[in-house]
Design a protein around this nucleic acid. Structure first.
Length: 667
DNA sequence: TATAAGCGGA
């Protein structure tokens, strides 16, 4: 994937060369063509060792050895002013030519002067032209610093293609080794622009160039990996940071916290927050707490969230808006509408005026508590006080009207939002279709769905599933089946969506058929599609197929998360493929994947199942020393395994151990 | 650098 990702950002050779903003002073160079850049970017690792060497711009070898400094004799501001008026390479050359070196080397500006001049030029076109002039006309030696300046300018102007081209030009044609600045600049700019995979794909290049990433760069990479859903990579980057003995700062710790939290490793996150951060002298802030709070709420561990929140208050750690919003949600989920209400109305006094997210959450809390009057009152208050309302506000209110059986008012809100220029989305549509379905307005629901399908709006899995459910509830099984059947040859529906719907509907054959087509055509570009197929096959005890999907996924360069590994270990176990299970367990651990306890327990139970008690004992011993593993649960699992294997003595020995130990597991 | 909205049934 990384290779493709980079390649996507590169244009067709012609589009760039003919682009009007590209200075024509960049003559056709035998050593650098767009084809070579594209080829280089497609094979990042190969290109770092082969390729560029020996190529290079031989011009710079002709550069006179002794260059004279004339810095003081030149008015740099005047020169910059003159440069700022140039628009063509010819004009630039006219400005610069007086400074070209004479055969005896006089009048040439020093490389240091030139780089300094370059770095004061913010315009990417002019800085690129200047760089070209330096290299091609004035025979300056290529310098990383000069390239970094142009790279920075290009990225500021969102010229990503050019920036990547420059990177490859440095490495390939000039055999320059880009430095940490080059990579930090590129990675953070690409990441900010949403080109996450392209940014992450630079990591192998970075390693190949022997650049050791600094703290901010590693932090950026951790966040990128996490945003791409690659928790394992995020966590292995954090271990790398620790191995390199780089002391993490607050931001790095918060990124790691987020990575642990999204990988579901809440105990590790908690240990980071309460042990490692204080030990490193870094005080957790509201973001640190909110990250863990939000993770607990996501996993429906509301009581632990409440307890962490009171912990936070006890430590006098200041609250912020997000903390409050997360807690409003948690109170609501615990049916503590009164507490949510109190927090909401005290936010202003705390200096944290509620945002649209706070209002939306509070609307939902009232709705869930069937306090419809309060919800409608708050909604009207938002309108009266001209507080921003968005599509979420309307979706929430539509659902509330649906719940209070006022489907006419729900429908009116869809029109009202459109009048205000707030566009309904897939969630709006599935909400209203479901409401109309329940109200017996089948025709209206079907008509809207049909309109959406033919209008080219992207159909998402839930929306489609909603319509199927409406038909099924109305007893129109034929209609429901037809919709499912349509997914075999999806029109206007992404293949991945079709597969996910079929899989969640438990349609094994159809899902497998579409999946095979899509994989064969290289159309599966989302790890969640693989996940849903593995879930489907696993639920239906088709363990061979689980392995097949997994291998295809690995073949496409996706990295499994801990949950997937548990499913695969289970499949291997059922197929009696113990060695492959053990190999996977080890390989994934070596690749830096941090397992949830479930994976370890699965492996223990596999060893027990094959009666490999030596291996079982060895693994048990290792897990006992692992501070991240819940000891009480470990012993319970181990006792169960021995019991199933009819080793009752061993089992009771372990049970005795549990009674003796005072293992207190909080998280 | 964290937060809000949809289905339905396992």
């Amino acid at each position: 994937m990384p290779d493709k990702a980079t390649a996507i950002l590169l244009p067709q050779p012609t589009s760039f060369l003919s682009s009007p903003c590209h200075p024509s002073s960049r003559p056709v160079k035998p050593t650098l063509t767009w084809n070579s850049i594209v080829a280089a970017s497609t094979h990042p690792i190969l290109s770092s060792t082969g390729g560029g060497r020996g190529g290079g711009r031989d011009v710079w070898r002709r550069t006179p050895r002794n260059q004279h400094y004339v810095d003081r004799s030149v008015d740099m501001d005047a020169l910059l002013l003159a440069l700022s008026q140039t628009t063509t390479p010819e004009e630039l050359h006219a400005v610069m030519s007086p400074y070209l070196g004479t055969p005896d080397g006089r009048h040439q500006l020093s490389p240091r002067f030139m780089v300094s001049l370059l770095s004061r030029e913010p315009d990417w076109r002019r800085s690129l032209a200047l760089l070209d002039w330096m290299l091609d006309v004035a025979s300056y030696p290529p310098s990383i610093f000069a390239f970094n300046v142009v790279l920075r300018n290009a990225l500021r102007a969102r010229q990503f293609t050019l920036a990547l081209g420059l990177l490859h030009e440095m490495r390939l044609s000039l055999s320059l080794s880009p430095d940490a600045v080059t990579y930090s600049t590129l990675v953070s700019a690409l990441g900010q622009a949403g080109h996450l995979d392209a940014a992450l794909s630079l990591l192998p290049l970075l390693d190949a160039d022997g650049v050791s990433p600094d703290l901010p760069l590693l932090t950026t990479l951790i966040d990128l990996a996490r945003k791409l859903g690659d928790h394992s990579k995020a966590l292995s980057l954090f271990s790398r940071l620790r191995r390199a003995r780089v002391p993490p700062d607050l931001i790095a710790f918060n990124s790691a916290l987020a990575a642990f939290a999204s990988a579901g490793l809440l105990r590790d996150a908690r240990r980071l927050l309460f042990d490692e951060m204080p030990a490193a002298g870094v005080a957790p802030d509201a973001v640190s707490y909110s990250t863990l709070l939000a993770a607990l709420v996501r996993r429906r561990r509301y009581l632990e969230a409440l307890s962490l929140f009171s912990d936070m208050r006890a430590r006098r750690s200041p609250l912020d808006l997000t903390t409050c919003n997360v807690m409003l949600d948690a109170y609501g989920q615990l049916d503590m509408a009164r507490e949510a209400d109190r927090l909401f109305w005290s936010m202003g006094r705390l200096g944290l005026p509620p945002s649209v997210v706070s209002y939306n959450t509070m609307l939902r809390v009232y709705g869930d508590a069937e306090l419809f009057g309060e919800a409608i009152h708050l909604f009207r208050l938002m309108q009266r006080k001209e507080i921003e309302q968005n599509v979420v506000t309307y979706n929430t209110m539509i659902r509330i009207y649906g719940k209070s059986l006022e489907h006419e008012k729900a429908g009116n809100l869809v029109q009202e939002m459109q009048r205000k220029g707030i566009h309904p989305n897939a969630i709006t549509y599935s909400t209203i279709i479901s409401i109309w379905g329940r109200a017996g307005k089948l025709f209206r629901a079907a008509k809207l769905f049909q309109k959406l399908r033919s209008s080219g709006v992207e159909i998402d899995p839930v929306l489609y599933q909603t319509m199927i459910a409406v038909y099924e509830r109305a007893g129109l099984v034929g209609h429901a089946k037809r919709l499912l059947h349509d997914l075999k040859h999806p029109e206007n529906i992404p293949k991945g969506t079709a597969i996910k719907i079929l899989a969640s509907a438990g349609r094994v054959e159809e899902a497998a058929w579409v999946f095979r087509q899509a994989v064969g055509a290289g159309e599966v570009k989302d790890i969640s599609v693989f996940r849903s197929m593995m879930d489907l096959f696993s639920r239906n005890r088709k363990h061979k197929n689980v392995i097949e999907v997994f291998e295809k996924m690995r073949g496409q360069g996706y990295f499994p998360d801990s949950e997937m590994i548990a499913i695969i270990l289970n499949a291997y176990g059922k197929l009696q493929e113990f060695d492959r299970a053990a190999a996977l367990y080890q390989e994934m651990q070596e690749e830096g994947c941090v397992f949830t306890d479930r994976v370890h327990f699965q492996m223990l139970s596999l060893l027990g199942g094959r009666r490999d008690f030596k291996g079982l004992e060895a693994l048990l011993e290792r897990l006992r020393d692992d501070p991240d593993i819940d000891k009480k649960e470990l012993h319970l699992v181990a006792a169960g395994i021995y019991e199933r294997a009819n080793k009752l003595d061993e089992a009771s020995k372990i049970i005795a151990q549990i009674k003796n130990s005072n293992a207190v597991a909080f998280i």
